[in-house]
């Protein structure tokens, strides 16, 4: 039943470190995507079930994001007016998404999401390194 109790204290600490440090680093370096690394770590290493891992990753990302943002603000002012649009859209979508999370399996959504990521990723890498 309680699989966490079986693993040793040292193993647990190592797992937390491997799950936590890169999450923060990715979040800081790329501004997003820490959660994409964190969720599978939470399910595999810390044995959370999928939905709990998703939910828990959200609250772990919040303070991490605040710190990254604070560092960014020293170098780069934010486009505030655009931020208002994105937050308005994001809040509407976020509420819908959290409700859908418990109802939709997300398999096909994952495929569509993956293909969009592949295409935009190739374009960005190309523009960044060769553009």
């Amino acid at each position: 039943m309680n699989r966490q109790a079986q693993s040793s204290q040292a193993g647990k600490r190592k797992n937390i470190l491997i799950a936590g440090l890169p999450t923060g680093f990715i979040n800081g370096l790329l501004g997003s995507g820490g959660g994409s690394y964190l969720v599978p770590q939470l399910t595999r290493r810390l044995k959370l079930e999928q939905q709990k891992a998703h939910a828990t990753s959200l609250i772990i990302i919040m303070p991490t994001t605040l710190l990254s943002l604070a560092v960014y603000l020293f170098k780069q002012p934010l486009p505030w007016s655009m931020l208002l649009y994105t937050i308005a859209g994001g809040c509407i979508g976020g509420l819908a998404g959290a409700k859908l999370l418990t109802k939709v399996p997300g398999l096909w959504l994952g495929l569509v999401f993956g293909i969009i990521l592949l295409i935009s990723g190739c374009r960005m890498a190309w523009a960044g390194f060769f553009g």
């Binding site: 997003s32 995507g33 820490g34 959660g35 994409s36 969720v39 891992a53 998703h54 939910a55 990753s57 959200l58 994105t86 859209g89 994001g90 809040c91 509407i92 979508g93 976020g94 509420l95 819908a96 998404g97 959290a98 409700k99 859908l100 999370l101 939709v104 997300g106 959504l109 994952g110 999401f113």
Partner: peptide, 11 residues
Amino acid sequence: AGVITGMGMGG
């Protein structure tokens, strides 16, 4: 992006 974030996929 909000929908995908809400589903925990890093939208």
